[in-house]
Amino acid sequence: MKRAFPWHIAVFLAPAFLIYTAFSALPLLDTLRLGFFTTHDSGHQTFVGLANYIKLLTDPDWSAGFWNAMNNNIKFFLIVMFVQNPIALLLAALLSMHGVRGAKGYQTLIFLPTLLSVVIIGFIWQLILSPLWGVSEKLMGFVGLADYFQPWLGDESSALITLSLISVWQFVGVPMMLIYASLIAIPDEIIEAARIEGASSWHIFWTIRLPLILPTLGLVTILTFVGNFNAFDLIYAVKGAIAGPNYSTDLLGTFFYRTFFGYQSQIGSPTMGAAVATTMFLIILSGVGVYFYFIQRKLQRFAF
């Protein structure tokens, strides 16, 4: 009995394994393979070893673009991380308090933008921030700030920040929900016990609730990291694949897109693009690795 082929395991695993392998793993492996090849004018490909990677990291034309995209991506991630997640934590904490009237309603509405397409969000915000339509300027005028209005999306120094804030606006609902769920999962007895001992809500939050939800905050961090280093749609929808002004909104995703598919008269190179894709993969992998080996392990100790 024990040695019989475990059919049930195969049945449980096979469908997921097959679809995942055929439509995700093999295509991605093929991309990794392509990274070691180069495309000739006639379209056929030959093996070149690490040449694409060396070019990407040492040829100034490529490396400048790559590091620019990399830096922008780090900025994008940091802004989202340190604006979105604290807001999410604040909202979740307020929502999880006892007896907040309309909490469900707030939750529902704040989560709403998450459901809308990035294409639509990008377009809506472009309209709102448009200097010609003047909605933002008028709104700022109500509080006497009209003079401070700038074409934020068009300015090299503010375009990336503006886009990351749009991203925050859209996706804050996701971490909010995750944190909220873990906050209300904390057993009432723990909180009650502290309250009986006379601890204030504020104190309870910092010393009891926050430590208990650290694993969730870790999960939120890593999801933000992976999500942001894959980001593409918003930049593409608002600024196009050339990510202006002066590539100040170029992220790894748009950089990959231009390399892989080309843009206008730039001819796309599937092989060079594959090298960029592989590099992105390694960056994400190392980020996730760091998370799992150092942070998650520590967090586990606090888990309940």
């Binding site: 472009q126 921030l129 448009s130 200097p131 010609l132 209005f149 074409p151 934020w152 068009g154």
Partner: peptide, 16 residues
Amino acid sequence: LAKGYSAQTYADTQNL
């Protein structure tokens, strides 16, 4: 050029 022209799209230009 119009105020805020660095954020003015081609469609904005046509509308303008």
